[in-house]
Simulated scan of single mutants.
Amino acid sequence: MSIEVNGVAISDQAINVESAYHKLADTDPREAQEQAALALTIRELLRQRATEVGLEVPEDETGLDAVIDQLLEQEVEIPEADEATCRRWYEQNPERFRTPDLAEVRHILIAGHPEDLEERNQARTLAEQLIEQLQADPSAFADLARAHSRCPSADSGGLLGQVSQGETVPEFEDAVLRLPVGLSPQPIKTRYGFHVVEVLQHVPGTALPFEAVQAPIAEYLEAVSRQRAMSQYIRLLAGEADIKGIKLDASDSPLIQ
């Protein structure tokens, strides 16, 4: 891979060394090499720009990061997220700023391994039978949970307490948060088996006040603005430079994340 930035070569050795910082457990080595080459190209572009505007650039890599930071602070304007901007984002994205919906639930887990079809069918059949019993005698739920459930909640009559998004497996949460209050007429299937479920109550989420989320909104919007401004700045420099051996896409560079 032969790369030049305004006549300055970036060696294969430098790319190989840099690629070590871009390798993750599931990263293709070629992808790590490409990311390393991109990062070094942008770094060289910024180093040359720093020299051009009169900043004191070290001959080696020591201190170059500080010079690049100084250059970017000097040449890239990051708009601040004022209160009006933050409030507009808050009003346009209400779903982001509310407490989660809750469902108070009790259940009976009839275990069935997902790869054992016979066990799964038996679990479904038993769950359906328990639902029929509970439809006839709702007061039997706790006793049936203690007798049949393979969840630790069996000791408390199947009571799980309040469930919200992200607290259990998604297929269970998605079902119980949609179900009406009362006994579900059908068992809920999850990776663990089949659940006999009774929703005791729903507690809908409530909107968080703007004042409580203004600071993180501002931080998020300024981070987005910073990324956009950096990408535009680097593209501008790249457009004025003679770059060979690589196509520069600033938005993908780890240097400006």
Rank of each mutant, 00 (worst) to 15 (best):
E132K: 11
S225N: 12
Q186E: 10
F210G: 06
A142F: 03
V197G: 10
P216I: 09
L126N: 04
A212R: 04
G193T: 07
D143I: 05
P187A: 04
S156K: 00
D242S: 08
A223F: 06
L200P: 06
R178G: 10
G157T: 08
I243F: 03
E240N: 14
E119S: 05
V163H: 00
S149F: 00
R235M: 13
T168W: 00
L221N: 07
K244S: 12
G158D: 03
H113D: 14
R120W: 09
I110C: 03
Q133G: 04
Q129M: 08
R235L: 13
A145I: 09
A215P: 00
E115Y: 05
L160V: 13
Q162S: 15
I234V: 15
L221K: 05
P180K: 01
F210Y: 11
V196I: 09
E173N: 08
R191A: 15
A147H: 03
A145M: 11
E132W: 02
Q232P: 05
E167P: 05
L237S: 04
S139L: 10
N121Y: 04
R235Q: 15
A241V: 12
S156Y: 01
A218G: 08
L134M: 08
D116R: 03
A140H: 02
Q232S: 14
P114G: 13
L183A: 11
L126E: 09
S231F: 03
I110T: 05
D143F: 02
V176P: 03
L109D: 02
T190A: 10
G158M: 06
V213M: 01
G166Q: 06
I217V: 09
V199F: 00
I110R: 00
L200T: 06
G239I: 07
S184K: 01
G205T: 14
G158S: 11
V213R: 01
A111T: 12
S156F: 04
P187F: 00
S225V: 12
